[in-house]
Amino acid sequence: MNRGSRLRPLRPLLAGLLCALAAGCTDRMLGPHAAPDHAAVFDELWREFDLHYALFQMKGVDWAAVGAVYRPRALAATSEQAFASILGEMLNELRDPHVVLTPTGVGGSLRYLTHCDTVALYFDERFIFDRYVPVTVLTPGGHMRYGMAAPAVGYIQLSSFVGEEWGRSEIDAALAGLPGARTALIIDVRNNRGGSVEIATQIAGRFADRSRVYGYLRLRDGPGHDDLTDFIEERVDPGPNAGYPGAVFVLTNRRDFSSAEDFVLAMRVLPGVTVVGDTTAGASGGPLLHELPNGWTYELPEWIEYTPDRRIFEEIGLAPQVVVKPTALDMAAGLDPVLARALQLARQAP
């Protein structure tokens, strides 16, 4: 029997099975879709936070009571804008800048503004480049600006950790561009609102002497608000070309959020690193993006982050070792007292 004749009886069977594959019954067998009406969207949002938000107990929020208050208001909303606004108000009860609702097609993202978003910082980065670091260069990816702040003292500005896979290459490029910075390096992360934890720790790893624990995470791990995993170590590991011979000063302020705080945590466990400036914002929950049945999206923090001595810094922030708080007078005089203090310390560095 040749191959063609052997396959002939298979043809009706194969044709039938191909039809079964192509018939699209796979979707129908999954059951009904979640409805996109206001009640279903509200319930989905409330339930997902109830099941996954990690910081209820730490923040002392009675989520059931919040839901009971806002559900009737949300269902009474007469427009999509009003509905989104009420959902935003409900999420604001969490006082968490990582909680973001994006009502796609209706308006911009709704996010809780902390006091760190609105407090006067008396900081203007133009003063840095006018007075302290007059000549600067951007790294090839454009994520870092660097220059010499004093003889043998380099300066690197890191204004964001957003993006993918640029941490190691950019810090290597910046350090290669500062061959004279042998005594000290100033890394300025003021007004850095975060981004990728991986990039933040990759850059910190460039200064690491060995693998060190810089913090801990506890992830939401069950339906109870106090269901959390055990402490999970966060480590900073030395990357390729790791090591810097001089002192390192990290500049911080109240507008350092999220991954910028991971960077500060990772740097401050390394030898020879001093943090100068003001306390960071204290926004530590790792958010994941989720969808709602109507196509809107939201960010939901699923962890609590701890310092190496297992203290929560959410809503508290990370205090610097050397506190310098700029004033309105500094601003009026075009001064950056934080950078000035770091320069003073750098000049005294061995």
């Binding site: 996954h52 995470l217 992830l219 939401r220 791990d221 069950g222 269901d227 995993t229 999970i232 170590e233 966060e234 790792g286 994941l288 699923e302 962890w303």
Partner: peptide, 10 residues
Amino acid sequence: PYGSIDRGRP
């Protein structure tokens, strides 16, 4: 697992 596994969750 209760959530994403790329964050160190057991």
